[in-house]
Design a protein around this nucleic acid. Sequence first.
RNA 1: GUGAAUGUAGCUCAAUCGGUAAGAGCGCUGGACUGUGGCUCCAGAGGUUGGGGGUUCAAUUCCCCUCAUUCACCCCA
Length: 420
Amino acid sequence: MGSNAKIRNIKGTRDILPEEALKWRRMEQVIREKMKAFNYEELRFPTFEYTELFKKSTGEDTEIVQKEMYTFKDMGGRSLTLKPEGTPSVVRMYIQHGLRNRSKIQKYYYIERMFRQERPQKGRFREFRQFGAEVIGSMSPQIDAELIKLALDIFKELGIKGIRVNINSIGCPECKEEYIKALKEFLSPILNGLCEDCKKRFITNPLRILDCKKDRDKLNSAPNTIDYLCDDCKRHFSDLREYLDYLGIAYDVNPKLVRGLDYYTRTVFEFIHSELGAQDEVGGGGRYDGLIEFLGGENTPASGYAVGMDRMLLLMPEIDGDKGIDIYIVTLDKESDIAGWKLLSGLREEGFSCDKDYLERSIKAQFRESDRQNARWTIIIGQEERKRGVVKLKSMETGEQKEVLLNMKAIKEEISAKGS
RNA sequence: GUGAAUGUAGCUCAAUCGGUAAGAGCGCUGGACUGUGGCUCCAGAGGUUGGGGGUUCAAUUCCCCUCAUUCACCCCA
């Protein structure tokens, strides 16, 4: 690595060079196509929000809010934060713009950059991209199943194989409370043997102790959330499973899956992949029936998820994109260069992708460049050609070369006659 | 925030036990072919060995500090 490169990109951010940009474009394109098919509309929202929004919705006690946010003060002294996740902004928009008045059910998606201040590692960055889908207004488990199906369709279309789906239900606020009571009873006698973090979580958010990897084996016999579901939640969860079966989606019920954010209720799920290293989660989400009311809106059920696009990229197979241009123009002297420059402009107007030399290079170098650019055709203009009002047109695949009149119609005909 | 590993040309990597003037492949530039790409051959450019300090007659090599990257922990997408 060059040491004199004193200015480099910030830790945890990534530069995307053309070859990789191609994969990103492909990913975005597939996401948009599938979202359209499922009738989700795009939402775009600001890079930063009032810190308060995330504290309230993501949750004061979550890892994200406690130590991962990029928070700063603006000149007016307001505390602002670079968005660490999308759902809070979507909900804010929903309330702020009265979107509920458009229809009883709203289906949205987004593709946005997120920011979290963690140590980077495989599949984890400080600036990263997520796409997400959110459905506001329906409590049907059909929606939960649809959301999962939507993500799986996107993975499939991109050639990503080996995704596994984990689901669980953590119940509504009532049964969640019942469960937490039972969990605390189970934990109390063994609390001293747990790690420091878990001891804190016992007070702040006992559910998340189930996530702890250190103490995992001590929790094998912990009570399961699904055993404490009320009748409604029980039915909701079994309906979800039934709908997933209808759609032919294979999944595992993971009773220890609780998710890290405060706002989840009932359905939670995640997409995991074994080739991602330690950060094996490609995406995850769930239902958040209480969040909108909590943030000042009407009591409205909702469900959604986010998928890490940087992680998807790691799983995507190589693709051969639209590399190359239609025409490269080689010119041999000053006057021809001007003629070529004019021709170039006309060809572009006609919709051809083309270019020429700007370095006054030798003909050989110009041909090399044409080859490097993967041009299908090379047009040569020199003194001789100019005298006779023609250009030479060479196919870079076959090497065949012929003279064509120097006018757009003749060139176009010759190129399209050979097909693509 | 904690830990470990790794930093040599644009990229991927060499350099014996510390010993000449740090090499190769790919890529780049030019030539062989003075108006024709790819293939081949030849030549050239490109390095303060991440940075700083120390040990030594001598450091890419050993020691310390620092920075960066990677992987893992925590946690998440």
